[in-house]
């Protein structure tokens, strides 16, 4: 176990060289790498902290925005619901008014049609009544309808002689002494004479009588002295019949009327 001092000194030198070499090629590079990594990690951590702070801030901003959007959405939704409700009410009102308008139109159309129908019916009945009366009078009594009308007119003049005479004279004296006899048919000479005779028996003054045939009258005769009038026609009968028909129409159920008139109602 002798100590070789040359080896000792050589090993000291070797060791010092190894210290230098390892310092140069091992410790410094490794420590530098570690330091660099630590710095890098530290920088990354700082950056991550900053990013996290920013992200948290943005998160808060987004949360706030989302809350605002939700609130706005709720408000808009409520507003939309309110608008929809008001629009619905408006449409319902419009529909109601439209229905009322259509109903009124329909009622008017119905009334118009009813009126037209009544007129047609009245005209037709009038024609039929006149025809029937003429035929019945001709067949049973061998009497002409026009003759009988003038007879009845004369009878009416005579029946109302007192009252009519008073009124007639009052009018005739204060107004022009002209009288107009209007009839739906041409009066015969005999009929004219009978009527003139009846009139002259009522009127104390002289009166000029004119004759006129008019289709406006419904099968009758009327005496006109200015605005004063004495008449007979089948208008009264027809009027009563028309009233009766009106009552009948009004008694009909509304459904029947609607059903019968449905096709004529504009949609």
């Amino acid at each position: 176990m002798a100590i070789d001092w040359f080896t000792v000194s050589a090993q000291i030198v070797n060791f010092l060289i190894l210290v230098w070499l390892l310092n140069r090629f091992l410790y410094k590079p490794i420590l530098n790498a570690i330091d660099a990594r630590e710095q890098r990690i530290s920088a990354q951590l700082e950056e991550a902290t900053a990013i996290k702070a920013t992200a948290e801030q943005e998160h808060e901003t987004y949360q706030r925005n989302i809350a605002e959007i939700k609130q706005k959405r709720t408000e808009l939704l409520a507003e939309a619901v309110q608008q929809a409700e008001s629009e619905r009410q408006r449409l319902i009102e419009e529909a109601r008014s439209e229905i009322a308008r259509l109903s009124e139109q329909w009622q008017q159309a119905l009334a118009s049609q009813q009126h037209s129908l009544q007129q047609q019916l009245t005209r037709r009945i009038q024609q039929e009544v006149i025809a029937i009366a003429r035929k019945v009078l001709a067949d049973l009594a061998t009497v002409d309808l026009e003759q009988q009308i003038s007879t009845v007119f004369i009878q009416r003049l005579q029946q109302q002689s007192k009252q009519l005479a008073k009124q007639f004279n009052a009018y005739a004296s204060s107004h022009a002494s002209n009288a107009l006899i209007r009839s739906t048919f041409e009066l015969s000479e005999q009929q004219r004479l009978s009527i003139e005779k009846s009139i002259k028996s009522l009127v104390q003054h002289h009166i000029e009588i004119q004759y006129e045939t008019s289709s406006d009258l419904l099968c009758g005769i009327e005496l006109l002295v200015d605005s004063f009038k004495i008449a007979w026609s089948i208008d009264d009968y027809l009027y009563r019949m028309e009233s009766s028909l009106n009552e009948l129409f009004q008694q009909l159920p509304a459904g029947e009327e609607l059903t019968s008139q449905n096709t004529n109602v504009p949609v």
Binding site: T7, V8, A10, Q11, I12, N14, F15
Partner: peptide
């Protein structure tokens, strides 16, 4: 022992 002495001397 030379090496260990060398290290010890260091």
């Amino acid at each position: 022992v030379s090496t260990t002495f060398a290290l010890a001397i260091c």
